[in-house]
Design a protein around this nucleic acid. Structure first.
Length: 580
DNA sequence: GCCGTTTTCGGCCCGACTGTTTTCAGTCG
């Protein structure tokens, strides 16, 4: 059959946004909630699947997407074929589209949005603010002065809130709070939960769970933590605050004997939990955050997640896998991956010294790596065309070799320093050094730093040309994205992955929490294709080496095992691979 | 609107918190 050609291209992200908008407008209109949830579920699937919906559409395979049935398939078909969606246009004529953004305001949901629209003619956030300031909200049914003030505060928070918080900011802070909670009298356990525990690259609010027999003093201590600047809600089991760094956090308290179900519930993801509850239902059990409800109405409590999974006939599933991306089926079949861990990494293959924009000498970087238990480090300073970094010329590389040898002598035989460079991929896809210079290096990383906004065909061809250079070992931060500010290059990933597979080049998972590039989904596709990965910190100073945990976390979310990662191999095997 | 080795029709998670209420509605996770 002939392949279909799209009238208009839509990325999965764009499709997801379209269906989320439909869901919001339908909900405000008052459509049955399950129809609304169905659109949101389809949007989630589109966002989280590794494949492009447009490709599936071309092959008439849209129905394979979980949560996409006849109606939503037809809507995507119309979008690809015509660039339009009549259903949405009619919906917009019924419900002002600006009302959807009202749902972003804390304490404003579909019911209130509809009421503000019908009673006051409010159709967007700006009009809501005007109405609230004029004191018009307080007289509406179910509203009062307090509700009006909360919405005003919510509007202010909304204008202040930028984006989701990068993991690299949220993780250290949440753990500091959790450790502090754990040190309070009577607290048996305290953990970050939610997307933070699943190590998603960005997180919204922080979810923290703790176990104690005596919740009142713990809750009281929490809301009076010296860094808390606002308390939004406080109850016996749950409270919600904002810290002075503008991170918001919820604390859930549970009795220690219920902590297993509680932590599982709070960790999510929502979809993972839904699957677990479905399994429970087949066993005539009802799983909640507090217990398993038995058919006779009694409850059984479990203190650990391991016990909860065991009741369901499953092994414990690492939080990074809990995204409903096949982990439950794998657990059932006894085929969970043996996920890579930080301790599996033996070598850092992407680091910088004072020979380019790094802050430390080669020896200092090597010593810092050794202190962290590594057996080898590649010093991969920038090449000269990346002017801002003070990159090396070919002559600099030869001069640097002497310093590497000196540092190697001081480090002794138990630690290896590799000669490397992070070579710029120029605008035409050629590398910054001639082949004979590249041949002298142990490790060649090729990276894009400029021209990331080139058209898809051009930037993809450029990267593939670099992949095909026989001296290149690793592609550094392949897409060039920066979290949360900059989208990566508009790469066509299929041919890029295919080229990496054919050339046997490793793709990097850059562990810098502002990069995490490749991401979890792309990493999983790469290992499924048999492409080797390399997890590196891109350290510009000794303490940057501690970014490793974020790269490993991203790899774990991508189901990566140690054998997939070249710098988790024994050093001898790694060195041999580099010489291939 | 989606989905099905319990169903092609009838489910789809539900409890905590707040505010405005005299027993509940809306929001949130």
């Amino acid at each position: 059959m002939e392949k279909k050609t799209a009238h208009t291209h839509f990325s999965n992200q764009q499709l997801a946004e379209t269906f989320r908008l439909i869901a919001d407008l339908l909900e405000i209109k008052g459509e049955v909630i399950y129809k609304v949830l169905a659109y949101r579920k389809a949007a989630d699937s589109l966002e989280h699947m590794g494949q492009s919906a447009e490709e599936l559409w071309q092959e008439n395979r849209l129905g394979e997407i979980p949560g996409v049935g006849k109606a939503i398939s037809e809507k995507m078909d119309e979008l690809f074929s015509t660039g339009q969606l009549q259903f949405l246009e009619k919906l917009k004529a019924e419900v002002p589209v600006g009302l959807a953004e009202l749902l972003q305001v804390p304490d404003v949901g579909p019911k209130k949005a509809k009421m503000f629209w019908k009673e006051l003619g409010v159709t967007n956030v700006a009009e809501l603010e005007t109405a609230a300031r004029a004191g018009k909200l307080r007289d509406l049914p179910g509203m009062g002065e307090k509700s009006e003030a909360r919405i005003l505060a919510g509007l202010e928070a909304l204008s202040r809130r930028t984006t989701r918080t990068p993991l690299g900011v949220a993780w250290p802070f949440a753990n500091e709070i959790a450790r502090w909670l754990g040190s309070l009298p009577g607290v048996v356990a305290a953990n970050p939960a939610g997307s933070l525990r699943r190590m998603r690259e960005t997180v919204g609010d922080l979810d923290i769970s703790a176990a104690t027999e005596d919740p009142a003093p713990v809750m009281d201590a929490f809301i009076h933590h010296p860094r808390v600047i606002e308390v939004f809600a406080v109850g016996d089991v749950k409270s919600s605050v904002e810290f002075d760094n503008h991170l918001r956090a919820q604390l859930w308290l549970h009795r220690p004997e219920q902590y297993g179900t509680a932590l599982l519930y709070a960790t999510g993801s929502k979809d993972h939990n839904v699957r677990l509850r479905e399994i429970a239902q087949t066993m005539k059990l009802s799983l909640s955050d507090r217990s398993f409800l038995q058919p006779d109405g009694s409850e059984k409590f479990y203190a650990t997640e391991e016990e909860v999974y065991a009741v369901l006939g499953l092994p414990w599933i690492p939080p990074e896998l809990r995204e409903d991306r096949g982990e439950i089926q794998a657990a059932k079949a006894g085929r969970l991956p043996h996920l890579i861990e930080v301790k599996d990494i033996v070598a850092e293959l992407h680091s910088h010294s004072t020979w380019s924009d790094g802050q430390a000498s080669i020896l200092e970087m090597a010593q810092a790596a050794q202190q962290r238990g590594l057996k080898a480090i590649a010093i991969t300073d920038h090449s000269h065309s990346l002017g801002v970094t003070g990159g090396m010329t070919a002559e600099d590389i030869r001069a640097r070799m002497a310093e590497v040898r000196e540092a190697q002598a001081k480090m002794g035989d138990s630690f290896t320093i590799l000669q490397g460079a992070e070579v710029e991929i120029r605008n035409d896809g050629r590398l910054d050094y001639p082949d004979e210079v590249l041949a002298e290096l142990d490790v060649v990383i090729a990276s894009l730093h400029t021209g990331l906004r080139q058209p898809k065909e051009q930037v993809t061809a450029r990267l593939i040309k670099a992949i095909q250079n026989p001296h290149v070992d690793i592609i550094g931060h392949p897409t060039g994205r920066l979290i949360p500010d900059r989208e990566g290059a508009d790469l066509d990933m299929n041919p890029v992955l295919q080229a990496a597979k054919e050339s046997g080049v490793a793709l990097e998972i850059n562990a810098n929490p502002s990069r995490l590039d490749l991401d979890d989904i792309q990493s999983r596709r790469a290992i499924e294709m048999g492409i080797p990965l390399s997890i590196n910190t891109d350290a510009h100073s000794p303490d940057n080496l501690d970014f490793l945990m974020y790269g490993v976390a991203t790899a774990r979310r991508g189901w990566v095992e140690p054998q997939h990662v070249i710098n988790a191999w024994p050093v001898e095997k790694l060195v041999q691979w580099l010489k291939r």
